[in-house]
Structure formats: structure tokens, C-alpha cells
């Protein structure tokens, strides 16, 4: 477990910054809920002039927007985007930094198997995501309680909040796969940012073109706040898609990494 703990130590500062950034963003958004919901007619008027494409891109769902769930769901689009970058960053860097920092020879000459390295590193990445989400959910609950001035279903709210976790797991696993397959990654952000945005753009186009088949391709479309609100659950077909992707990618990561030549 030593690699696991060491990785957590390496990332504690980054984790703290991300948690603070996500929580602050959330609080800032939530704090304007009161003023928006009290002037809902004005807001409706303004939004009706927005181009439909824009509303789709920002995942704006008017049906429930004026409720705390809907408003939170709307904020989540932006949180997902940021969280995806965080997760992808962790996934890519946790393996590739050993090569860029030339520490791979150090690590691989120790009495550890490749699969143990991979398992402990993945566990570390996943823990970082879990910690992020615990902090985020607690902030969300406290924030909503404070700013909404009305009762809300905690279960639905937590289910909405947990979508961040699923989106992050997707990108963590994807980053991990990139870290094993790509031979040398000079800067992690140059891989993470474009990838996340490509998935975001695919999601937007899927929405604009009204092509639900596209939705399978991108986790940004797996979790529709309206669906979660109405069904008190996630859409199973997308959960399967996510699960399938995670399992496939992880298996592929192990196969590649165990056989990989680590170059200087």
C-alpha cells in the first residue's frame, strides 16, 4: 500500500485546490438562486430570447429550472466540466509523471509487480475523486439548505450531486488509459484539456442535432437532471454504458502496462 499512500501525499495540495475551487464555484452559483427564483417571470422572459442551441449546450432545462434541483442541475454542467479536467489530470499524470520525472527506473526496479503499481495508483486516483465528491456533496447540501429557504429531498439532491463522481470516474479511467498507451506525455494539461472539451463538444452537438445515439459517446449526456428528478434514479442504459467503458478501459490499461517497455 506504500505506493497508494505516497500518491495521496503527492496530490494532497492539488486535491485541496480543486476541492476549494469546486466548492467556491458552487457556493457562488447557489447564492444567486434566491434572486433568480424570486424573479422567475423576468428570468423566463430573458431566457426565451436565448438561442435554443445555447440552452442545449449549457444543459438548461426550463421544466425544473426554478426548483433547487433544476438550478443545481444547471450548475452541474459547469461543475462536470471542471471536475472532468481534474479527473483526467489525475488519470493521465499519475502514471506519466514517472516517465517525465525519470522516476520510472526507480519505481520499476523495486520489488513490485506492474499490476500492483497500476492497482495502487488507480486506487489512489479513485480515492482523490471520492474525497473530492464527499467534500462537494457536503458543500452542496449545506449550500442548498442555506440558500433555498425551502425543504428539498436530500436523496434526490445527493443523487444529482453524485453525477459528478460518475463523470469524474469516466475521465479518470480514460486518463489512466492514455497514461498507459501514450509513450511519453510532456505536459498533462495538453492531453487532458482537449480531450475533455472534445467530449463536451460531442455532447453539445448531440443535443443540438437531437441525436440521442450520440449521448452514449459522452458522459456529459449520461445524467439528465430532469430524468433523475422525475425517476429518483439514473437512466440504466447510460449506467451500463459507463460501467462497460470503465471495465474495458481498465482491462486494456492492465494489458498494455504489464507488457509495456518503459523508455528513458
Amino acid at each position: 500500500m506504500n505506493i497508494f499512500w505516497q500518491e495521496l501525499r503527492f496530490y494532497r495540495k492539488s486535491l485541496l485546490i480543486w476541492v476549494l475551487a469546486l466548492s467556491t464555484t458552487l457556493i457562488v452559483f447557489l447564492s444567486s438562486y434566491q434572486s433568480i427564483s424570486s424573479q422567475i417571470d423576468v428570468f423566463r422572459e430573458v431566457v426565451s430570447h436565448y438561442p435554443k442551441a445555447l440552452l442545449l449546450v449549457i444543459n438548461f432545462r426550463f421544466e425544473i429550472f426554478y426548483t433547487i434541483y433544476g438550478y443545481f442541475g444547471y450548475i452541474l454542467t459547469f461543475i462536470w466540466l471542471a471536475g472532468a479536467i481534474q479527473a483526467m489530470n489525475y488519470g493521465v499524470s499519475i502514471l506519466s509523471k514517472e516517465v517525465t520525472d525519470k522516476t520510472a527506473d526507480f519505481l520499476l526496479s523495486k520489488p513490485v509487480s506492474r499490476s500492483r503499481i497500476l492497482t495502487e495508483k488507480f486506487a489512489a486516483g479513485l480515492s482523490l475523486i471520492v474525497i473530492t465528491n464527499i467534500c462537494f456533496t457536503v458543500t452542496a447540501l449545506l449550500g442548498a439548505k442555506y440558500f433555498s429557504h425551502s425543504n428539498f429531498g436530500i436523496k434526490t439532491f445527493i443523487m444529482l450531486s453524485a453525477t459528478l463522481f460518475f463523470v469524474q470516474v469516466f475521465f479518470l479511467v480514460l486518463g489512466f488509459l492514455f497514461g498507459t498507451i501514450l509513450p511519453k506525455i510532456k505536459t498533462v494539461l495538453s492531453v487532458a484539456l482537449p480531450t475533455v472539451f472534445i467530449f463536451f463538444i460531442v455532447a453539445s452537438f448531440g443535443g443540438i442535432l437531437d441525436k440521442p445515439d450520440f449521448y452514449y459517446l459522452t458522459p456529459f449526456k449520461y445524467f439528465d437532471p430532469v430524468y433523475i428528478y422525475q425517476n429518483s434514479g439514473y437512466d440504466p442504459k447510460y449506467l451500463f454504458a459507463l460501467g462497460g467503458f470503465v471495465v474495458t478501459s481498465l482491462v486494456l490499461s492492465y494489458i498494455v502496462y504489464i507488457r509495456k517497455d518503459i523508455k528513458l
Partner: peptide, 12 residues
């Protein structure tokens, strides 16, 4: 085995 690689390494 104790191994001293030719390339110096360091974790940040």
C-alpha cells in the same frame, strides 16, 4: 537488487 540508474531522478 540494488540499482543505481544512470539518469538522475527526483519526485517533485
Amino acid at each position: 537488487i540494488g540499482y543505481l540508474p544512470s539518469e538522475i531522478f527526483y519526485y517533485e
